[in-house]
Nucleic acid binder design. Structure first.
Length: 107
DNA sequence: CTAATGACCATTA
DNA sequence: ATAATGGCCATTA
Protein backbone atom coordinates (compact mmCIF):
# COMPACT_ATOMS: atom_id res chain seq x y z
CA UNK A 1 0.00 0.00 0.00
CA UNK A 2 1.47 3.33 -1.02
CA UNK A 3 0.63 6.65 0.57
CA UNK A 4 -0.65 7.73 -2.81
CA UNK A 5 -3.36 5.07 -2.86
CA UNK A 6 -4.20 5.63 0.77
CA UNK A 7 -4.84 9.29 0.10
CA UNK A 8 -7.06 8.34 -2.79
CA UNK A 9 -9.13 6.00 -0.68
CA UNK A 10 -9.37 8.61 2.03
CA UNK A 11 -10.59 11.23 -0.39
CA UNK A 12 -13.03 8.85 -2.04
CA UNK A 13 -14.60 8.00 1.29
CA UNK A 14 -15.61 11.64 1.70
CA UNK A 15 -18.04 11.46 -1.17
CA UNK A 16 -21.53 11.23 0.33
CA UNK A 17 -24.19 8.88 -0.93
CA UNK A 18 -26.19 10.45 -3.71
CA UNK A 19 -23.22 12.45 -4.99
CA UNK A 20 -20.27 11.77 -7.28
CA UNK A 21 -16.76 13.11 -7.78
CA UNK A 22 -14.51 13.03 -10.83
CA UNK A 23 -11.12 11.38 -11.12
CA UNK A 24 -9.59 14.81 -11.67
CA UNK A 25 -11.30 16.07 -8.57
CA UNK A 26 -9.85 13.28 -6.46
CA UNK A 27 -6.47 14.02 -7.95
CA UNK A 28 -6.79 17.65 -6.92
CA UNK A 29 -7.89 16.72 -3.41
CA UNK A 30 -4.74 14.75 -2.76
CA UNK A 31 -2.48 17.43 -4.15
CA UNK A 32 -1.64 15.75 -7.45
CA UNK A 33 -3.86 17.71 -9.85
CA UNK A 34 -2.49 15.98 -12.90
CA UNK A 35 -2.60 12.42 -11.69
CA UNK A 36 -6.18 11.67 -12.65
CA UNK A 37 -5.13 8.69 -14.68
CA UNK A 38 -3.14 7.21 -11.86
CA UNK A 39 -6.18 7.72 -9.64
CA UNK A 40 -8.14 5.43 -11.92
CA UNK A 41 -5.40 2.84 -11.73
CA UNK A 42 -5.44 2.90 -7.95
CA UNK A 43 -9.21 2.53 -7.73
CA UNK A 44 -9.05 -0.35 -10.15
CA UNK A 45 -6.81 -2.29 -7.84
CA UNK A 46 -8.93 -1.43 -4.85
CA UNK A 47 -10.09 -4.78 -3.43
CA UNK A 48 -12.61 -3.30 -1.03
CA UNK A 49 -16.00 -3.98 -2.49
CA UNK A 50 -18.62 -1.44 -1.60
CA UNK A 51 -21.33 -4.05 -1.37
CA UNK A 52 -19.70 -6.39 1.13
CA UNK A 53 -21.84 -6.38 4.23
CA UNK A 54 -20.35 -5.96 7.63
CA UNK A 55 -17.18 -4.51 6.25
CA UNK A 56 -16.02 -1.65 8.50
CA UNK A 57 -16.76 1.73 7.00
CA UNK A 58 -13.10 2.64 7.26
CA UNK A 59 -12.38 -0.12 4.74
CA UNK A 60 -15.29 0.61 2.42
CA UNK A 61 -14.23 2.63 -0.55
CA UNK A 62 -17.23 3.85 -2.55
CA UNK A 63 -15.31 3.83 -5.78
CA UNK A 64 -18.55 3.72 -7.77
CA UNK A 65 -19.02 7.40 -6.89
CA UNK A 66 -16.01 8.38 -8.97
CA UNK A 67 -16.80 9.21 -12.58
CA UNK A 68 -15.32 10.98 -15.59
CA UNK A 69 -15.14 14.73 -15.99
CA UNK A 70 -17.55 14.66 -18.91
CA UNK A 71 -20.22 12.96 -16.82
CA UNK A 72 -19.86 9.51 -18.33
CA UNK A 73 -19.44 6.59 -15.97
CA UNK A 74 -15.86 5.62 -16.49
CA UNK A 75 -14.74 2.13 -15.61
CA UNK A 76 -15.62 -0.28 -12.89
CA UNK A 77 -13.92 -3.53 -11.91
CA UNK A 78 -17.22 -5.41 -11.79
CA UNK A 79 -18.60 -3.77 -14.92
CA UNK A 80 -19.94 -0.31 -15.65
CA UNK A 81 -23.45 -1.70 -15.61
CA UNK A 82 -23.04 -2.62 -11.96
CA UNK A 83 -21.65 0.79 -11.25
CA UNK A 84 -24.71 2.45 -12.69
CA UNK A 85 -27.03 0.17 -10.72
CA UNK A 86 -25.39 1.07 -7.42
CA UNK A 87 -25.51 4.77 -8.21
CA UNK A 88 -29.16 4.51 -9.12
CA UNK A 89 -29.81 2.89 -5.76
CA UNK A 90 -28.22 5.91 -4.14
CA UNK A 91 -30.33 8.30 -6.14
CA UNK A 92 -27.88 9.30 -8.83
CA UNK A 93 -29.62 9.30 -12.18
CA UNK A 94 -27.64 8.14 -15.19
CA UNK A 95 -29.46 8.94 -18.41
CA UNK A 96 -28.01 8.45 -21.84
CA UNK A 97 -24.90 7.07 -20.21
CA UNK A 98 -24.23 10.43 -18.61
CA UNK A 99 -24.64 11.95 -15.18
CA UNK A 100 -25.82 15.52 -14.64
CA UNK A 101 -22.77 16.86 -12.80
CA UNK A 102 -24.48 20.17 -12.15
CA UNK A 103 -26.78 18.27 -9.89
CA UNK A 104 -24.80 15.38 -8.48
CA UNK A 105 -21.20 16.55 -8.28
CA UNK A 106 -19.78 16.61 -4.76
CA UNK A 107 -18.46 20.05 -3.94
C1' DC B 1 17.18 1.22 -14.48
C1' DT B 2 13.66 1.51 -18.64
C1' DA B 3 9.20 0.37 -20.85
C1' DA B 4 4.53 -0.56 -20.83
C1' DT B 5 -0.01 -0.03 -18.93
C1' DG B 6 -4.44 2.12 -18.02
C1' DA B 7 -11.64 3.02 -14.07
C1' DC B 8 -8.20 9.91 -17.27
C1' DC B 9 -8.23 14.88 -19.25
C1' DA B 10 -8.32 18.82 -22.35
C1' DT B 11 -7.87 20.24 -26.84
C1' DT B 12 -8.54 19.98 -31.57
C1' DA B 13 -10.65 18.54 -35.95
C1' DA C 1 -22.10 15.21 -31.69
C1' DT C 2 -17.82 11.80 -32.13
C1' DA C 3 -12.80 10.69 -32.79
C1' DA C 4 -8.12 11.35 -32.63
C1' DT C 5 -4.17 13.38 -30.20
C1' DG C 6 -0.76 14.52 -26.93
C1' DG C 7 -0.02 14.84 -22.25
C1' DC C 8 -0.08 12.99 -17.62
C1' DC C 9 1.61 9.82 -13.74
C1' DA C 10 1.77 5.90 -10.15
C1' DT C 11 2.41 1.21 -10.56
C1' DT C 12 4.16 -2.95 -12.40
C1' DA C 13 6.89 -6.03 -15.35
Amino acid sequence: MTSFTEKIYSATRKIPSGKVATYAQIARMIGRPRASRAVGNALDKNPHSYLVKGLPSRQRVPCHRVVRSDGSLGGFASGAKKKQAILAKEGVVVSGGKIDLKRYLYR
